[in-house]
């Protein structure tokens, strides 16, 4: 309950026009002509000689949640990592095709990956807080990107981010204690706070709830729903229910191929592909 109150106050603080706009966005049934943020076209990914993704094309809509579902090993994480070029860090990984963020080619050699990752944040499947204090965990991103001009500003960013991640109340008395000392669910929310502290435009989440209990999962889903107002979110999940609950659009991957992408409701109720139907009804996967 406190959550909603907080969001409300947060919303009140926003400029009223944006607030109205967001409310409209949230309440409006998402249609096919949503503004797209990220465009992926004919993406092929190879790990050495092995191809992991085959001609994947998908549009990620602005200020919405898109869910990537599919059986294990079908390339969801691989695709997610293409969007902020985390694949660059993997030895022998090669990406072909075109990915555009706001019309800008992400794989353009002139693109600075540091800037790209400041714009496209990521939350990993396993909580991975830095072995530093809770405060420093959240403050690190703003610090390296020079987002805060002084200490009070930095503290403000940290507090706001922790509040947005729904963690502030639990940790406000121990911001100086190590982030690794939190519970798994708290750690994951800390990682989310860390990611949103940089104010990225797009947040990629790779199975953010896979290690969490139902209560923590519910909290994070609630959070994703709130974040949707300001951020574009791409989430990988193995839980069909979760995809249905949090996303507006869903993309189904199978063996490295994007089988089907569309409004979540449609994917779950009237999929056009047989494989999608089998998967969402639990016949395989």
């Amino acid at each position: 309950m406190t959550h909603n109150q907080e969001t409300e106050t947060a919303a009140m603080n926003m400029s009223s026009s944006q607030f109205v706009q967001d409310q409209l966005n949230a309440s409006e049934p998402r249609s096919n002509e949503m503004k797209t943020r990220v465009i992926a076209k004919d993406v092929n990914v190879f790990y050495g000689a092995k191809q992991a993704l085959f001609d994947v094309s998908v549009n990620v809509p602005d200020k919405a949640v898109i869910a990537f579902i599919g059986p294990s090993g079908c390339g969801k994480s691989t695709f997610l990592r293409c969007l902020n070029r985390m694949n660059d860090t993997i030895e022998g990984c090669r990406v072909e095709g075109e990915i555009r963020l706001d019309g800008q080619d992400v794989y353009d050699p002139k693109i600075d990956v540091v800037e790209l990752r400041a714009r496209v944040g990521m939350v990993f499947q396993k909580p991975n807080p830095f072995p530093k204090s809770i405060f420093e965990n959240v403050a690190y991103g703003p610090k390296i990107h020079g987002l805060a001009s002084n200490k009070t500003e930095l503290e403000e960013i940290v507090v706001t981010s922790l509040k947005k991640a729904g963690l502030f109340e639990e940790v406000k008395d121990r911001l100086r204690e190590p982030g690794t000392g939190l519970s798994g669910g708290q750690q994951q929310r800390l990682c989310i706070a860390r990611a949103i502290a940089v104010s990225p435009e797009v947040i990629l989440m790779d199975e953010p709830c896979s290690a969490l209990d139902p209560i923590a999962t519910a909290k994070i889903e609630e959070l994703i729903d709130e974040l949707r107002a300001n951020f574009t979110i791409a989430i990988v999940t193995h839980s069909m229910q979760q995809a249905a609950r949090v996303s507006q659009r869903t993309a189904f991957f199978h063996l490295g191929v994007l089988v089907e992408e569309g409004p979540t409701e449609q994917i779950f109720t009237a999929p056009s592909d047989k494989r999608t139907q089998d998967y969402v009804t639990g016949r395989f996967g």
């Binding site: 902020n84 985390m86 860090t89 800037e115 990752r117 400041a118 944040g121 990993f124 991975n128 860390r194």
Partner: peptide, 27 residues
Amino acid sequence: VPPSLRQAALGLGASKTQTVFHHVLPV
């Protein structure tokens, strides 16, 4: 050092050098 630590820093937009000197080396 677990790769997840490097990924965490890189994912936030830390450069390779920052990742090494701020996070990997202290550990």
